[in-house]
Design a protein around this nucleic acid. Structure first.
Lengths: 199, 199
DNA sequence: AAAGAAATTGACTGTTTGGTCAACTTCTTT
DNA sequence: AAAGAAGTTGACCAAACAGTCAATTTCTTT
C-alpha cells in the first residue's frame, strides 16, 4: 500500500494527474490494475491519498521558527530543513507544485485554513523579532513565499537548474551552493549577520 | 490563429497538456475541432507552438543586466521586468513551469543551449561587478535561479499566495509588496544599498 | 465571372482510458 | 478443519479521446 503510494507519487510528479494512467501505474507497481482499484477505489482517491501524505511535510518544517531563538539561527535552520525535503522528497514537491499550478482544486481547504493559520502564527513570531529590533522590518508573509519559492525551485525546476549548470544531477556541491546563496539572501535581506563559513 | 494560441495557452496552464482536450479547446475558441487540426496538425504541435511563443519572453528580460549599469539599478530593473511578466502573462509562466516540472521534454535544447549561454553571459557581467568591488561575492548563477523562483512564484503558485493572504485576487498592493520584498532580499543579499522608499 | 486555392465543418473511426465484475485464491478466526 | 472474510486477477465495457476525411463554403487571382 505504501509502495503503491510511492510509485503513484513518482508518476504523478513526472506525468501529472491526467498523464498518469492506472494501467502504467499498475505495471510500475507490479500489480494488476484491478488491485489498485480494490485498495483506492478511483484514480482521484489514489491521488488524494498521495497528496495527503505530503501535506504534513509542508507544515512541519516551520517548527524551526520559534520566538526564543535568535532570528538568524531560526531562519538558517528553516531554510536547511526546507532544502533537505527538496532533496529527499523531490517527487512530493513536484506533485504539490503541479496541484498549485492547476488551481489547487484539492487543496483549497488546506491552503486557506491549515497553511494560512500556520503562516499567520509564524509571521507573528517574525514580527516579534522585528519589534524587539532583532531584524529589519520585512513583510513576514512575503518572506515565507520567497523562501518557499527559492527552496522548492531546486526540486520543481531541477531540469532547468541542471541544464544551466551543465551537470547530470544535483549533488552535494550544488545543494551546498544553493543553501549558501539562499541563506545569504534571506539573512542579509533581513538585516542579520551572515558570513561565508557560517555552517 | 493568435486567438487559438491564446486560448490554448490558458487551457494548458490551467489543465496541463493531458488535461486539455482538443474538443474543449475548440469550444473555448469558438471553432470546430477539425479546424484546429487544419491549422496545427496535432495537439503536440499546437502545444509546441504555445511553448515557442513563450521562450522569447524569458530571455528578453535579462537585457536589463549590462556591465555599465550600477548593479543595484540593473538588478532592480530585472526584478521589476520579471515581475511585470509574471503579472501580465501568468498563463505563459504556468505553461513553462508545468513543462519544467515534468522534465521539460520539449525544452531540453532551449535550456541547455540558448538559456544556458545567456545565463553564463550575464553571470560574467555579475562577476565583473564583484571583481570591481561593486557588490558582494555571490554565486551569480544561483542568484538567477533564486530571482526566477521568487518572481515566478507569484504566477505559478498564485492560489497559494491568495489563500494565505486571504485575498480574492492579487492586485497592485500585493505586487508592490512582492516587489519590495524580493528587491530587498536581492539587493541587501548582494551587499548593495537599499532603502524603503526607493522606487 | 471563371477557376483554383484556402478554409470550414459534421460525421466518422480506431484506440485508450477509468472503472467493474465474477471467479478464484489466500488468510484469519473459531 | 470448516467457514467466512480479505485479497487477487483476467476479461470485459462504456465513455472520452486525438485524429481523419470528404463535402461544402469562402476567399484570391486572373
Amino acid at each position: 500500500m505504501a509502495h503503491i503510494l510511492a510509485v503513484a507519487e513518482q508518476s504523478f510528479a513526472e506525468a501529472g494527474f491526467s498523464g498518469t494512467t492506472m494501467e502504467r501505474l499498475a505495471q510500475a507497481a507490479g500489480l494488476p490494475k484491478a488491485n489498485l482499484h480494490y485498495y483506492f477505489g478511483t484514480k482521484e482517491q489514489l491521488y488524494r491519498g498521495v497528496l495527503e501524505n505530503i501535506l504534513a511535510l509542508w507544515l512541519d518544517d516551520m517548527n524551526a521558527i520559534t520566538p526564543e531563538r535568535p532570528p538568524a539561527e531560526a531562519l538558517t535552520a528553516y531554510i536547511r530543513a526546507k532544502l533537505a525535503h527538496t532533496r529527499t522528497r523531490p517527487h512530493a514537491s513536484k506533485v504539490f507544485a503541479a496541484e498549485l499550478l492547476h488551481g489547487a482544486p484539492h487543496l483549497r481547504r488546506f491552503l486557506s485554513f491549515e497553511l494560512r493559520r500556520r503562516v499567520i502564527e509564524k509571521a507573528r513570531v517574525i514580527r516579534g523579532w522585528i519589534d524587539r529590533g532583532l531584524m529589519a522590518p520585512i513583510d513576514p508573509i512575503h518572506l515565507f513565499f520567497n523562501i518557499w519559492a527559492m527552496t522548492q525551485t531546486y526540486a520543481d525546476f531541477e531540469v532547468q537548474v541542471r541544464a544551466v549548470l551543465g551537470v547530470n544531477r544535483l549533488g552535494d556541491a550544488e545543494f551546498a551552493a544553493a543553501e549558501k546563496t539562499i541563506t545569504r539572501l534571506v539573512l542579509k535581506g533581513c538585516g542579520l549577520h551572515w558570513q561565508e563559513g557560517k555552517p
